[in-house]
């Protein structure tokens, strides 16, 4: 009895151990790629951040001085402030546009694939190309917007949109929404489509109104999708660089220096690679913290679908 129980236990355990090894082999390529292209670079960045590392010349060990310097660096805090401001506004704008669009294209209606395609088209344009396109659109002399607004009588004379902070910021927000909203829409769309039609129908039979169905049925069931879309949007906005670099070169009077832009300037304009690395590590920590907080706020992972 005991021996048979033992053998059966072994028999039961052995295939389990095998699947463990097999599983490891399956994920080995992914792990290798992540190690090679993420873990090692991060470790190297960490190593660099502990040095005074000029682009030309020999690095010198300075311990944590790059990190302490950060706390007295007003320009870094300005960049953080601007990035937070930008992230908040652009994320809200993207969701405000993408959610209605997702609801609009979810229902089967004539030409729905066409709508989806049109809204998604800007997503396949590179951000740098899109920025260049919009630099031209916003050009006061040879572009589109300034003469158009002038002709329509919205402005008296042509306005140089990129010359003042408010208008330049607005131009960039509109550009990013135009560029990104389609992507967020597709993510939200998958969430909407995953909601079983029976549930909505049951709610309708129970007498729930349109708003009530959205608030108490659609939103809670889309929590995971929302979390994904939110994290992608927030992370993307915090890492924003191309549009500021290309469209305004940091904006009128440096008012549009995002954190990544500041890291770029420190590393490749001032050649302080060590300090740039330290700033990158700080940014990585901020991003991880923010993502954890967002997951926690949206309570993703608590329940199993």
């Amino acid at each position: 009895m005991t021996t048979s129980a033992l053998t059966s236990a072994i028999r039961r355990r052995r295939p389990k151990r095998q699947t463990g090894w097999r599983g490891l082999i399956y994920i080995a390529p992914a792990m290798a790629l992540v190690t090679l292209f993420f873990v090692l670079p991060v470790l190297f960045t960490l190593w660099m951040s502990l040095h005074k590392w000029p682009l030309l010349g020999e690095p010198a060990w300075i311990g944590l001085r790059n990190y302490t310097r950060m706390f007295t660096d007003a320009r870094f805090f300005n960049a953080l402030g601007f990035t937070a401001h930008y992230t908040l506004i652009v994320t809200m704008a993207i969701f405000a546009v993408a959610f209605p669009l997702a609801i609009f294209v979810e229902k089967q209606r004539p030409l729905v694939s066409l709508y989806r395609t049109i809204v998604f088209l800007p997503v396949v344009v590179g951000l740098a190309s899109a920025s260049l396109l919009w630099v031209w659109l916003a050009n006061v002399d040879s572009g589109l917007f300034a003469p158009l607004f002038d002709v329509l009588g919205l402005t008296s004379g042509r306005i140089n949109l990129l010359a003042k902070f408010d208008t330049a910021f607005l131009t960039i927000i509109v550009m990013v929404v135009w560029k990104i909203a389609g992507f967020t829409m597709i993510i939200l769309l998958t969430g909407l489509q995953a909601i079983p039609a029976e549930l909505t129908e049951a709610a309708r039979i129970d007498g729930a109104g349109r708003w009530q169905r959205f608030r108490h049925l659609t939103l809670p069931l889309m929590r995971r999708t929302m979390a994904l879309a939110l994290i992608l949007s927030v992370t993307g906005s915090i890492l924003a660089f191309d549009q500021f670099y290309i469209m305004t070169s940091g904006g009128p009077q440096n008012k549009m220096i995002s954190v990544v832009y500041y890291i770029f300037n420190q590393s490749f304009v001032s050649f302080n690679l060590g300090y740039g690395a330290a700033l990158s590590i700080a940014l990585l920590l901020i991003l991880v913290t923010l993502s954890v907080v967002q997951l926690w706020l949206l309570k993703v992972g608590d329940e199993r679908p």
Binding site: Q253, N265, V269, S270
Partner: peptide, 28 residues
């Protein structure tokens, strides 16, 4: 020279725009 003058985000480049186009010349 790069940090002070030539960098598009350096103090000189910022100054030329802020002083000539900005509202606050003294601040610039």
């Amino acid at each position: 020279f790069n940090d002070l003058i030539n960098s598009a985000n350096g103090p000189w480049a910022t100054f030329t725009n802020a002083a000539i186009y900005g509202d606050d010349v003294d601040g610039a």
